[in-house]
Design a protein around this nucleic acid. Structure first.
Length: 305
DNA sequence: TATCCAAGGTAAGTT
DNA sequence: AACTTACCTTGGATA
C-alpha cells in the first residue's frame, strides 16, 4: 500500500474534491462512508475508485482512496503510482484560473465558478465512462449511480485492499457476458440492450471508445456514435469526461433550458449547430468547463436569483 | 392511495 | 435530412 499527501495549494485554482466527484460527471467514484450523493458529512470522507488493471503486470484492478482535509489532499492506494493517477483522474494539472479567464465575460458562468471554486473536470476510464453515460439517458443522477453500482457488484471483480473488499467496474469482456434480460433485472430498462451490444462491440475488439482520441473534435463525436445507445449528447460526455476534449459541450436538458433562458441566440435547431454556437460563446478551448459549472450550478439550485 | 410526470436521450420508422 | 414516436423504471409531485 502506498500512502501520501500534498497541499491543495500545489494545484492552480485549488481543488474541491466533493464537488469534483459529486457533480454528475463521474459515476465511477464512491464515498467510503456509504453516504449517497451530496449528503451532509461530519468530516472529510474518503472517496474511492477501482481502476482497470492496466499499469501492473498482474492486471489486477487498482484501488485508489482519496480525501481532502484542511488544505491537504491525502491518498492511499494499491498502486505505487497513486499521485500520477490522481493528477490524471482529477485533472489536477488544469489551471482553473486560466480556464475561467478563457471563457468570455459572462456573469452566469462567473457566479457558477465562484459558487463551486475548485471543482474540476474528471478523466474517467473510457469504457466505464461510456457505459455510465449510456445508462444516463432519461435518468436521475442518483439512479445512474445505482445502476453502475449494480453493474459492478454483479459483473465486476472483487479486489481486497487495506482490509476491505472493493468492486471494480466490469471489463468489456465481463460485461459482454451479460444478456439483455439480466441487465433489465438490474433496472436498466430500455438501456439494457444498448449496454449489452456496446459491451460486445468493445469486448470483441470491433471498436474501442479510446480510438476517438486524436481525431478532430467533431469527427471524434461522430466516431463515438457508432456505439449502441450513444447519440451526440452521450458522445460529448465521453469526450469531455474521459477523452480530454475540453471543448465538448454536452447539450442535456439543463443546458438546453439555460440556452433558452440565457443564450437564446445560440439556439440553432440542430444539435450540431446549437452545440457549435454555445461552444463558441464559451470561448472554445475550455467550453466544457463552462458547461459543467453551469450544469452543476443550475442542478443544485444555486442560481441566486 | 392512485395517478401522473419527468429524469444529464437514442433508435427506428415516416415524410 | 428533418420530424415523430416508443421506450423501462422509479421517486417525487399532485389529486
Amino acid at each position: 500500500m502506498e500512502t501520501g499527501s500534498c497541499p491543495i495549494a500545489t494545484f492552480d485554482g485549488g481543488v474541491d474534491l466533493a464537488k469534483t466527484l459529486e457533480s454528475g460527471q463521474s459515476y465511477l467514484w464512491r464515498r467510503e462512508d456509504g453516504q449517497m450523493y451530496m449528503n451532509a458529512t461530519g468530516g472529510s470522507p474518503w472517496y474511492y475508485t477501482v481502476l482497470p488493471g492496466t499499469t501492473t503486470e498482474t492486471n489486477e484492478p487498482e484501488v485508489i482512496r482519496v480525501r481532502q482535509t484542511d488544505g491537504q489532499l491525502e491518498w492511499a492506494s494499491s498502486t505505487p503510482h497513486a499521485y500520477e493517477q490522481l493528477v490524471k483522474l482529477l485533472r489536477l494539472d488544469d489551471d482553473l484560473d486560466s480556464v475561467i479567464e478563457s471563457i468570455p465575460n459572462d456573469p452566469l458562468i462567473e457566479s457558477a465558478y465562484e459558487a463551486h471554486r475548485g471543482m474540476r473536470l474528471v478523466r474517467d476510464p473510457p469504457f466505464g465512462c461510456l457505459i455510465s453515460f449510456i445508462c444516463s439517458a432519461q435518468m436521475r443522477v442518483s439512479r445512474i449511480y445505482e445502476m453502475q453500482t449494480a453493474l459492478a457488484s454483479t459483473y465486476g471483480e472483487t479486489v481486497h485492499f487495506d482490509g476491505n473488499d472493493y468492486r471494480a467496474f466490469p471489463t468489456p469482456t465481463q460485461l459482454a457476458a451479460a444478456d439483455e434480460s439480466a441487465l433489465r433485472e438490474l433496472s436498466l430498462g430500455y438501456r439494457a440492450p444498448y449496454v449489452e451490444r456496446t459491451a460486445k462491440m468493445v469486448a470483441t475488439g470491433n471498436a474501442d471508445p479510446s480510438e476517438a482520441v486524436g481525431l478532430e473534435y467533431e469527427d471524434a463525436r461522430e466516431s463515438l456514435t457508432r456505439f449502441v445507445g450513444v447519440g451526440d449528447k452521450v458522445a460529448d460526455c465521453v469526450l469531455l469526461f474521459s477523452l480530454g476534449y475540453l471543448e465538448a459541450v454536452p447539450l442535456d436538458t439543463w443546458i438546453r433550458t439555460a440556452i433558452e433562458e440565457h443564450y437564446p441566440d445560440c439556439e440553432r435547431g440542430s444539435y450540431a449547430d446549437t452545440s457549435k454556437a454555445i461552444r463558441e460563446r464559451f470561448g472554445g478551448q475550455y467550453a466544457g468547463y463552462a458547461q459543467t459549472y453551469l450544469f452543476h450550478h443550475l442542478r443544485t439550485g444555486e442560481e441566486g436569483d
